[in-house]
């Protein structure tokens, strides 16, 4: 009797089909809030959201982020306001994907996206520079630096209001 019960279980599982998936040919979708590799976002007009304030680097518990800022001009504008990130690097070997950088960002420029396939042949490849992190500009919009009208983008941070 026990023998039959045992076979029945086995046969049931044989008929169930496999639970494994053929990664990397197949991929399991990640959750909406999954914290994968970072991306630097842009506004619809193509300007970078990142203003180079270094608050992400200050918040980072793993000291994985390196930011160097420089000054925008209307002839060479990367982001609204006066300051932009000249250098922006994240060391993915150090990053613990805690998402503090996302919380610290005053302009919602850095977002932990769903990319998780991070592997490197060289330690140095693990340092993601700004051009690897930043999203491409929206379709039909020039990349940065842009030439802009004087006075149009002289403030970096969207007007803040008291939390409601």
């Amino acid at each position: 009797m026990n023998l039959i019960r045992g076979f029945a279980t086995t046969i049931k599982h044989v008929l169930e089909g496999p639970v494994t998936i053929q990664y990397p040919e197949q991929e399991r979708p990640v959750r909406e809030r999954f914290k994968g590799r970072h991306a630097l976002k842009r506004y619809d007009n193509g300007l970078e959201k990142c203003i180079g304030c270094s608050l992400c680097a200050a918040a980072c518990p793993a000291d994985a982020i390196w930011v160097e800022a420089a000054e925008n001009t209307d002839e060479e504008r990367f982001s609204p306001g006066e300051r932009y990130a000249k250098t922006y690097e994240i060391n993915m070997l150090r990053c613990i994907f805690c998402g503090y950088c996302e919380d610290a960002c005053p302009t919602e420029a850095i977002v932990l996206e769903h990319e998780y396939r991070l592997s490197f042949n060289d330690r140095r490849d693990a340092i993601y520079t700004k051009d690897r992190l930043i999203d491409p500009p929206p379709h039909g919009v020039p990349a940065t630096p842009q030439v802009t009208e004087p006075g149009q983008f002289d403030r970096s941070i969207p007007d803040m209001e008291n939390p409601k």
């Binding site: 203003i51 005053p106 403030r155 970096s156």
Partner: peptide, 11 residues
């Protein structure tokens, strides 16, 4: 006073 401390050098 603007609240642009994130880009202000004095911040």
């Amino acid at each position: 006073h603007p609240l642009d401390c994130p880009i202000c050098d004095k911040g």
